[in-house]
Simulated scan of single mutants.
Amino acid sequence: MTGNGMSEDHHHHHGSGRVLLWSLVFTTAFAVVELLGGLLANSLALLSDAGHMLTDSSALAIGAIASWLAVRPASARHSFGLQRAEVLGALINVLFMLGVVVAVAVAAVQRLTQPQDVAGMPVIVIAAIGLGVNLTVAWILIQGEQTLNVRGALLHVFGDLLGSVAALVAGTVIVLTGWTPIDPILSLFVAILILWSAGRLLREVLRVLMEGVPRHIDAHEVGDTLARVRGVRAVHDLHIWTLSSSSYALAAHVEIDGIAAWERILPALQALLRERFGIAHSTLQPETERIRNACDADPTCGHVGHAR
């Protein structure tokens, strides 16, 4: 790990932790207000959004803790540090969201089969305030580094924002028409939207945990680019994976004509990886003709990026 890489990672996670903490303060404060308002108005739209926001508070707290852990220095036990903490935080956020979706869906179905009276005007007032709070929190999060943790928090906030809009519409319809089924119907609609977004984030988290190549990086392009560096014959046994949202790692075997040239080739390869692909953590093993011949005799030694 280069000194610059450590500094940049620390800055990214420190910034994301700060915006998560500010978002936590706003979200927790209004969640209590919305919960009391939902009970007063007997509105499922408000209650589900309050539950969503309380879940957001827990998720934001987890995200802030994960961001703090992510900047802890590497140790003998964790050689890459605790950068993956943000990925685990994002995974917990997704699981929380799935729980909220199930709870809202069950309550909505019950309300549809057994309609209840809802006080429309309090719903409108509280939902309008909630919309403003959610827009403020979303703006705070967007200003921060877009790590998986922050994106997970944004997912929660956008869900809250949709919940506030749904509650605002539900309250308006109830005041104008008295049709109370609109309350559970819109709650169910928001739950479906949240489920779709949670599924997208879950796929990305699983991609990281399964050591997948970062979505924006083409492994073949990386191998071919490295193989075009002067003195490099080919690159093989190439592996690229994600450490955190802003940190990637690479390991590869590099075939060269002679070991004497490695002192010049290695810095060129590392600079190319950092500047073109954003890969700051690289482990490159040089191979001479003798080692290359042994590799060619091994059917498990695949090639990515061939000699010029």
Rank of each mutant, 00 (worst) to 15 (best):
L95G: 04
F96V: 01
V100T: 09
V100E: 06
V101G: 02
V102C: 09
V102N: 05
A103Q: 07
A103R: 03
V104C: 09
V106L: 12
V106D: 12
A107Q: 07
A108T: 00
R111L: 07
L112D: 04
Q114T: 12
P115Q: 14
Q116E: 14
D117E: 15
V118E: 02
V118Q: 00
A119E: 11
A119G: 10
A119H: 12
G120N: 01
G120M: 09
G120L: 08
P122S: 05
P122K: 02
V123I: 01
I124A: 10
V125T: 02
V125E: 02
I126L: 09
I126A: 02
I126G: 01
I126R: 01
A127W: 10
A128E: 06
G130W: 05
L131W: 02
L135Q: 07
L135H: 05
T136G: 05
T136H: 10
T136I: 10
T136M: 12
V137N: 03
V137T: 04
W139T: 10
L141Y: 06
Q143F: 14
G144S: 04
E145P: 12
E145Y: 15
T147R: 03
V150K: 06
G152M: 08
L154Q: 11
L155Q: 13
H156I: 04
H156E: 03
V157A: 11
V157Y: 09
G159V: 09
D160C: 04
D160R: 03
D160L: 03
D160F: 10
D160P: 01
L162I: 12
L162N: 15
G163L: 12
S164Y: 13
V165E: 06
L168R: 01
L168C: 05
L168S: 07
L168E: 07
V169R: 00
A170W: 13
V173N: 00
V173D: 04
V175N: 08
V175K: 10
L176E: 11
L176Q: 11
L176I: 07
T177G: 03
G178K: 01
W179A: 03
W179C: 02
T180L: 12
I182H: 02
D183E: 08
P184R: 01
P184I: 10
L186K: 07
F189H: 08
V190C: 04
